[in-house]
């Protein structure tokens, strides 16, 4: 088994785990993590494609590496946005619950 096979299979396994997590995870945080695992799998597969030299026929193709870096930046931004939304949502929910309790008391 060469490195290409090993990393290719690992990437496929990560993609599988990520898709399963996105569909089945109960909470939003679980889904955000699953999205990151899925993204990691895709980037790993992209790396394997680069290693194989892709269609260009080079020994190692540099283009996918540049694309993977861009992809990682985008995925990071997406995770940050999702996490910010989640934090804000839980803050608002806590506020609503507190107001509800106050109304009960009075």
């Amino acid at each position: 088994m060469t490195g290409v096979h090993l990393f290719g299979l690992a990437g496929a396994a990560l993609v599988g785990c990520g898709v399963y997590g996105l569909l089945m995870a109960p909470g939003a945080l679980g889904r955000i993590l699953a999205f990151n695992i899925l993204g990691g799998g895709v980037f790993l597969i992209f790396g394997v494609v680069a290693r194989r030299g892709a269609g260009a026929g080079f020994g190692a193709d540099p283009v996918p590496q540049a694309l993977v870096i861009t992809g990682i930046v985008v995925a990071f931004c997406a995770t940050a946005l999702a996490a910010a939304l989640l934090v804000r949502l839980s803050a608002v929910d806590a506020e609503v619950a507190r107001d509800g309790e106050k109304e009960k008391e009075t």
Binding site: V15, D61, V63, A82
Partner: peptide, 29 residues
């Protein structure tokens, strides 16, 4: 609603990216 939208959209974009990766692996462009 925004969080659900974002998660759907992110799932969509990762699937799209996986397709792009396969295309690049096949054709190199």
């Amino acid at each position: 609603a925004a969080l659900t939208y974002l998660l759907f959209a992110l799932f969509g974009s990762v699937l799209y990216l996986l397709g792009v990766v396969l295309i690049y692996g096949l054709f190199g462009t």
